[in-house]
Design a protein around this nucleic acid. Structure first.
Length: 104
DNA sequence: TTTCTGACACTAG
DNA sequence: CCTAGTGCCAGAA
């Protein structure tokens, strides 16, 4: 194999991130860092960047910060969509302890 | 090649 | 509970 082959870069990081987000079941959520690690990358910021470019093609609202909060521009749609799917909330933030999805 | 930016994560106070 | 500072990686100019 051509290299350490730590995580297969067969496809652009963007495609793998979008695929991971689409795999998230309704009622569950994942943090940017979790998605990044799930795809084999350590750049949670890139995940947000990718969703910003093609977020309209995937349930981006199922992805938020590791503390359960979200960005200002998303706060309104983010919360509305999650509540509609039955995601457990704790005040203004999501209960990651119960809604966090680890890929199984 | 270097430099800047970004829908973040983490630790400390 | 909150804010502030630092480190991380990937892509574009």
């Amino acid at each position: 194999m051509p290299g350490p082959a730590g995580g297969g870069d067969l496809e652009p990081l963007a495609d793998r991130v979008l695929a991971c987000v689409q795999l998230i079941p309704a009622g569950r959520v994942m943090s940017y860092g979790d998605v990044a690690e799930f795809v084999g990358s350590r750049a949670p910021r890139q995940v947000g960047r990718i969703l910003a470019l093609a977020g309209g093609t995937v349930p981006w609202y199922r992805v938020l910060r590791s503390d359960g909060s979200c960005a200002e521009h998303l706060h309104s749609e983010q919360v509305a969509s999650l509540v509609a799917e039955g995601v457990p909330f704790r005040g203004e933030r999501v209960d990651m302890a119960a809604a966090r999805w680890d890929g199984r």
